[in-house]
Design a protein around this nucleic acid. Structure first.
Lengths: 152, 152
DNA sequence: CGCTTGCTTGGAGTGCGCTCCAAGGTTCTA
DNA sequence: TAGAACCTTGGAGCGCACTCCAAGCAAGCG
């Protein structure tokens, strides 16, 4: 959704969050690792580790070799953060990142991966709602027992 | 806390699941560890480990020292299974087990622990629903892109 | 009786997702 | 130009929740 090509890669990884990028500083588009850490809530350690395991596209470097993240990296990290919240294993996120790197002919496989993830999320929500029933039952029990003590 | 008190301990830990105990064999009320493993889906290793770390009340033994689980143990494990599904850390479940062991004067603290857990579960559900929005967005994108390819 | 299968223990090992360390080089502020 | 604060790397370490191992005792069957 930027300018010309049929479906630019960034369209695919942009718009990743319902989050419209509030504290995302614009202007220079080059952030140090600690800026990105502060923005994403991830540690600098984790950001470097993400890059090592292939979960980040190649991050730009300054002339002396320090990382300079771009807004696009921030968008990608936002998506990764969402996938992480789904409980998707890191290995699967790396797989997804590889598919993105390989280009548009992997759209089908990406879609399948995301559909599987959605399926898992729906299952997990159902599971959690099942636990809520038990929690409510027991909380009510304790509340009732404490309100009406020892009626032996 | 066995025969006379106002609110017997078993009332508290019974009825743990909405699950009415379908494949729960009755009659002898003494199950070997592998029977319990088959019933709960936990491994025998895990059952022994739960006991070691204090997550199980003391399990009965045969005259030769082998574990003999009771229906009450099964009920407790059913509750533990639910708490595990909530994502509660094992250490907190152990804490809860200790409170149960300590008797009825811990009702308030048990209730608080469960309320905190419910709060966490509600938050987690909201989080997962947030991820669903992103997953739906991207799945729709891939589906649309594959239906209408290259319109340059 | 022997055989197979199952149970016992303490302690060691595994996989995941970070998290930190040491030993340096870089960048910023005064 | 000094000093503090930040960045780099490979590799080691950690916390959690199991998971397995070895060596030996127990239980059920023909």
């Amino acid at each position: 959704m930027e300018s010309s090509p049929p479906i630019p890669e960034d369209t695919v990884e942009r718009c990743a969050g319902a989050d419209p990028g509030h504290p995302r500083p614009d202007g220079q588009d080059r952030y140090t690792i600690s800026e990105v850490a502060a923005h994403t809530g991830l540690s600098a350690h984790t950001l470097r580790w993400y890059e090592r395991i292939g979960l980040m596209p190649h991050v730009d470097r300054s002339h002396t070799g320090q990382r300079r993240f771009t807004n696009r990296d921030l968008d990608w990290l936002s998506l990764v953060g969402k996938l992480r919240l789904t409980g998707m294993p890191v290995a699967d996120m790396v797989r997804y990142a590889e598919l993105v790197r390989q280009g548009e002919h992997t759209f089908e496989e990406r879609q399948e991966l995301l559909e599987q993830t959605r399926h898992d999320v729906l299952g997990r929500i159902a599971e959690l709602q099942g636990t809520l029933a038990v929690l409510n039952y027991k909380i009510d029990f304790y509340a009732g027992a404490r309100r009406a003590p020892e009626r032996a």
